[in-house]
Design a protein around this nucleic acid. Structure first.
Length: 1117
RNA sequence: GGGCUUGUAGCUCAGGUGGUUAGAGCGCUACACUGAUAAUGUAGAGGUCCGUGGUUCGAGUCCACGCAGGCCCA
């Protein structure tokens, strides 16, 4: 059995071959099955939607998921991964509408709801094949055979069961939200409809800056200076018709406000007004600033003003004022100043008038501050706003009752009698002294695309889940979730929970999970259906009661089928389904339950798989999937839904721009994988930036990863395989005890074990990037560039002895361990590596690395001293190399010795232990150590700032100066006595200990030195005759090796060398080093001849040498 | 506008709890090596650590205010 050897490994082909192997041998299924009965590691798949093609960012997101599932499998956990598909929602609907060339209006007219939904069902899985292919090719292991699909009957039934549970707990209620509404068309508009071109138009509206009179109560007295002072808060509105609905005023927390004394320009009354400081100049003419308030005469054009006080927005919060237009009274305390997060000083007065029924922001801040909306009770006893659905003021608004708030009656606006309602309101406020300023203002305003009439923001019926009822629990449990990165959990998600509003479930659409609530027309009675069985029996009742003509089986829980069902209430009235669909986020948030058709079946499976140990999705899901999972889990199970979560960032193009098909900068994942193979793509994405940072995806980076990491690893394996095959090393021998292995063997094994621990800790901490980087650094720097480089000869030279076996075993262990610990990130390549090794050695019974187990850290094999001295060896070698370089002495020229000043015994022993390595690496004969006793060391002293800073603090500078002024004698004194007194000032001294400073050797007089940190190395550059000859010998070896290579000789081929007599130094070198040359070049004989035809001319420094090598001695000469 | 996040060499990124010469890889330049060779090694050039203030004996690191990019929300 031989180790596979590859020429020009094709990484894409590795992917294909390994995939084939996995499929043939059911490796994925077995990686789950072989862990059956072990502790489960629960993973939830956030379902993608297959109505679009997958992009490169999906590779990123899924690589992250895959890594931890594979890792946990290696650690022995039982990791089920059920796939899933998200199938409902607006994107599908829009795509279908676009393809059919229809709009929402046409549904139910040009096309039946049934046909429409059928189209959606077909469209949503259109690219499923592409998704499946990508899943396979990128190596994302997830069960695609039994996925959950959100449009399936069982799935929807589970959603219904959950909704009913919420309903029974009192968490489901009908309320309203503020939505764009067209009174002329009598319908709500989606934001999508509003974004149709031409909907936003320039209009000229009457705007009012209204004066809200501050109440003269104790709470507000800080705003008043005099008994008779009238203090008003100014607020601007472009929709005066909303003023009767005012219940609050909003200020910005950090905005500066001022109180200004002035006069009302319509009534000439003296007033004090409050507005944002930055906007004073917009309402007051600076020319009037110098006029005394007392000099004002009624009717003067220039109105004097005086800024008398300044406040922060937060000071104003809580100030109460008198209702501006007291037609209707609220049912709770209102009319006070609140903080609004969206208030600016860009226009208006920096104070915003709040009318909760007519603005979405208004509604939200009012709800957050417990400010009621102004509602009246209609003839049905229903609470309704003060503007009806036709856009008219209700009866209660006496002065304006029945008037359209906008011109929905299509009156002739050019007629001299025509007065918009807004103007009438302005006139009334002017008369009452409540208008500070009225003017026309031109701005854009949305219009209904069908009627061309202005849209109102208006409360429309909506079903809600009362998430605010469990807000504290949501926050509390969120704190137990391990978020990566942490800031998403406490920041983005935490803030979202802090500012929670009830979850608006309603969607006025067709393709989605229907709301399972039936109501009587008066809304008095209702039922929430929680299962198909319940629905069937209710239908049965309805048929018996006669509200339905005949019994129908429910074939599909979608619209329109459920809409055709009429149920009967307790009192015998017909109940119709609330036509809303529910938010698709409910579908995905329900997946922990619905994927198992829980609670109808699989109770045990559900319980074993809840909550999830781990989920991962894009950070854009924070308020989507992450929230709905969390909210449902808290409300239904009083539990978190997931314990660990990675919120990954975006994948941008190499310039940091968002990828889009339109801009043409989108990267095709299939092309990437096809070109570079799945492993390099995955490794690049994971190693380049932490998943939660945005990734600037540059294909050149993939190339680099492939070359630098996979290339190096593959080179190392090839090197191993080449010689192991020659020596028939199959790891059949007993492990060579560590004691009998070389320093470098023990070093790399020590490093390897350290690595295994680091990588384990990083995976455990859900930080794949650090894991990948640690592996990469080990492979490139430690294993390849140091261990293999230093030990090459042990592999290809000499007989198959214990030292050679130790080398093979060591390198084998490193490669195999890397295969295991890197397999979660690069599952294909590492599989091949593992199998290439294991199929020869049969060390493991598992035929796949993904069935194997994560290696244990052999603590006994970790030797920190050894790692430290190898560091020393590397640094010393590097210093010597740099000295050689400066002197232009090539490494092949041996040198006699290097000198290393040692500061203590430990350092000396540490270096001595790796002296052989250093000597062979830098080609010198001996290392000499010099210490204090030599008397030639020049030492350098530097303060230990960290330590001294803590002691001396502000006097640090004095200490530092004193330390730097110490001479050689002082340093010696300090070292000898363990203390040294320094002068800080004339009358202040301090005693230093050796710990307070760092002492290093600086120079060796008369030598060529180089230093780094505390290490200094001196090189003896004398080249004796003997060294010179050895250098020539080594050069000859080198040239002969080249000749061997050029002649295409195999590594093990023996040769005969003939050299024509050359310069005397060369001849001498050949004679003296004949044995060495022969050994190195696998030569059986080396002869100097007088005449050598057919020879190769070699240039060695200044010499010319004629050489001929032959495998057959007879053909020579 | 708000919340979160990023900003360090031409590029991609490291830089626990503050410590005085800010690092790596790639790229660039020069040299070396040549039985791992479509490799490798050594050296060099390259930095207002986004800006401005502040805290401190000492700030890439802590604080404040900005600037620029990104995401989510409005």
């Amino acid at each position: 059995m031989k180790y596979n050897e590859y020429k020009n490994l094709n990484y894409a082909k590795v992917g294909e071959d390994v995939l084939e192997f996995w499929k043939r041998n059911n490796i994925f299924e077995r990686s789950v099955a072989t862990r059956e009965g072990n502790t489960p590691f629960v993973f939830y798949e956030g379902p993608p939607s297959a109505n679009g093609t997958p992009g490169i960012h999906h590779v990123m997101a899924r690589a992250v998921k895959d890594i931890f599932c594979r890792y946990k499998t290696l650690k022995g956990f039982h990791v089920n991964r059920k796939g899933g598909w998200d199938t409902h929602g607006l994107p599908v609907e829009l795509q279908v509408e676009k393809e059919l060339g229809i709009t929402k209006e046409d549904i139910g007219k040009k096309i039946t709801v049934e046909e429409y939904n059928q189209r959606c069902r077909e469209t949503v899985m259109r690219f499923k094949n592409q998704w499946d292919t990508l899943t396979e090719q990128m190596g994302y292991w997830v069960d695609l055979n039994n996925p959950y699909i959100t449009f399936e009957r069982e799935y929807i039934e589970s959603c219904w069961a959950l909704l009913k549970k919420l309903y029974d707990k009192g968490y489901l209620y009908k309320g309203y939200t503020i939505q764009p509404y067209s009174p002329a068309a009598g319908t709500g508009l989606s934001s999508h409809e509003l974004n149709q071109p031409g909907c936003y138009k320039m209009v000229k509206d009457t705007t009012i800056v209204a004066q809200f009179a501050v109440k003269r109560i104790t709470r507000n007295m800080f705003l008043f200076e005099r008994e008779d002072e009238q203090v008003y808060i100014l607020a601007w509105t472009t929709t005066p018709w909303t003023l009767p609905g005012n219940t609050a005023l909003a200020v910005g927390k950090n905005i500066k406000y001022v109180k200004v004394q002035t006069y009302n320009q319509y009534t000439y009354e003296p007033i004090s007004v409050i507005l944002a400081k930055d906007l004073v100049s917009r309402y007051f003419n600076p020319k009037a600033a110098d006029i005394e308030l007392a000099d004002y005469n009624s009717g003067d054009k220039l109105i004097p003003y005086k800024i008398v006080e300044e406040f922060d927005g937060s000071d104003l919060a809580g100030v109460e004022y008198h209702q501006l237009m007291p037609y209707v009274q609220p049912d709770k305390p209102a009319f006070r100043v609140i903080i609004g997060d969206y208030v600016t000083t860009e226009d208006g007065t920096g104070i915003v008038h709040i009318s909760p029924t007519f603005g979405a922001d208004d509604f939200r801040v009012a709800a957050q501050n417990d400010i009621p909306a102004l509602l009246i009770t209609d003839e049905n006893g229903k609470q309704v706003p003060i503007v009806d659905r036709q856009g008219r003021f209700v009866r209660e608004i006496t002065d304006f009752a029945g008037m359209y708030v906008k011109n929905y009656a299509k009156e002739d606006e050019s007629s001299p009698e025509y007065r918009p309602t807004d103007v009438k309101i302005a006139i009334k406020l002017k008369e009452e002294g409540k208008a500070f300023k009225v003017e026309k203002y031109e701005h854009t305003y949305p219009h209904c695309w069908r009627t061309d009439m202005p849209v109102l923001y208006y409360p429309l019926d909506s079903w809600f889940i009362k998430t605010t009822a469990v807000k504290d629990r949501l926050i509390e449990l969120n704190k137990t979730i391990n978020w990566k990165p942490e800031s998403t959990g406490i920041g983005r998600f935490g803030n979202w929970l802090e500012n929670l509003v009830d979850w608006n479930l309603s969607r006025s659409r067709y393709w989605g999970t229907p709301l399972p609530i039936w109501r009587t027309e008066d809304g008095e009675e209702e039922i929430c259906i929680g299962s198909v069985v319940e629905l069937t029996s209710e239908i049965d009742r309805a048929v018996k009661a006669g509200v339905m003509e005949q019994f129908i089986e429910v074939p599909d829980l979608h619209r329109p089928y459920v809409d055709n069902i009429v149920l009967v209430s307790k009192s015998g009235k017909p109940m119709y389904r609330e036509t809303d669909l529910i938010d698709v986020w409910f579908d995905s948030g329900a997946m922990p339950y619905a994927q198992w058709h829980y609670p109808f079946e699989n109770k045990e499976i559900f319980e074993q798989n809840f909550p999830a140990d781990f989920i991962a999705e894009g950070v854009d899901q924070t308020r989507g999937w992450f929230f709905t999972l969390h909210a449902l889990a808290v409300m239904l199970e009083d539990s978190v839904a997931f314990k660990n979560v990675i919120a990954n960032g975006l994948v941008l193009d190499k310039d940091g721009n968002k990828m889009s098909k339109r801009l043409g900068n989108a990267i095709d994942p299939f092309e990437m994988i096809g070109t570079y193979g799945p492993d390099a793509v995955r490794w690049y994405m994971i190693a380049n930036a932490p998943p939660w940072d945005n990734l600037k995806f540059n294909p050149e980076g993939v190339v680099e990863t492939q070359r630098r990491f996979f290339g190096t690893l593959q080179n190392t394996y090839s090197f191993f395989a080449l010689y192991a095959n020659l020596d028939n090393f199959t790891y059949q021998e007993e492990d060579v005890p560590m004691l009998h292995r070389t320093e470098s063997d023990r070093w790399i094994i020590s490093k390897l074990n350290t690595l295994v621990g680091i990588v384990d800790a990083n995976y455990e901490d859900y930080d794949p990037t650090r894991a990948a980087r640690a592996i990469q650094d080990f492979v490139v720097d430690d294993l390849s560039n140091w261990y293999v480089r230093l030990n090459r000869k042990r592999f290809w030279k000499g007989e198959y002895n214990i030292d050679k076996i130790a080398a093979y075993q060591t390198l084998y262990t490193c490669l195999e361990t890397i295969a295991k610990i890197a397999s979660p990130i690069a599952p294909f390549y590492m599989e091949q590596l593992y199998r290439d090794l294991n199929s020869v050695s049969n060390k493991h019974k598992e035929e796949s690395v993904h069935l194997a187990y994560y290696p244990e850290v052999e603590k006994a094999d970790i030797d920190k001293d050894l790692e430290e001295r190898m560091d020393l060896a590397q640094t010393i070698s590097s210093l010597v190399h740099s000295l050689r370089k400066k002197q232009m002495i090539k490494v092949r020229q041996p040198l006699q010795r290097i000198l290393i000043p040692v500061l203590n015994d430990k350092m000396k022993h540490q270096i001595a232990a790796v002296a052989d390595l250093i000597m062979s690496e830098v080609n010198v004969k001996t290392i000499e150590y010099i210490d204090d006793t030599s008397g030639i060391l020049v030492k350098k002293i530097k303060p230990n700032f960290k330590k001294l800073g803590q002691v001396f603090g502000p006097k640090m500078k004095l200490v530092a100066t004193a330390v730097q002024q110490m001479n050689q004698n002082d340093i010696a004194h300090l070292e000898r006595e363990g203390g040294f007194e320094i002068m800080l000032s004339d009358d202040e001294t301090a005693v230093l200990t050796p710990d307070d400073v760092e002492i290093s050797s600086e120079d060796i007089p008369g030598w060529l030195v180089a230093s780094e940190g505390r290490l200094t190395v001196a090189l003896d550059i004398t080249i004796t005759e003997e060294l010179k000859q050895e250098g020539i010998a080594r050069d000859l070896v080198n040239r002969i090796q080249n000749l061997r290579k050029d002649s295409n000789l195999e590594v093990q081929d023996k040769i005969h060398i003939f050299m024509q007599r050359a310069a005397e130094e060369v001849n001498q070198a050949v004679v003296n080093y004949s044995a060495y040359i022969c050994a190195e070049t696998q030569a059986l004989t080396l002869d100097i001849v007088e005449e050598l035809p057919n020879s190769t001319i070699l240039d060695i420094d200044d010499y010319t040498v004629l050489i001929n090598i032959q495998t057959d001695v007879k053909s020579a000469v």
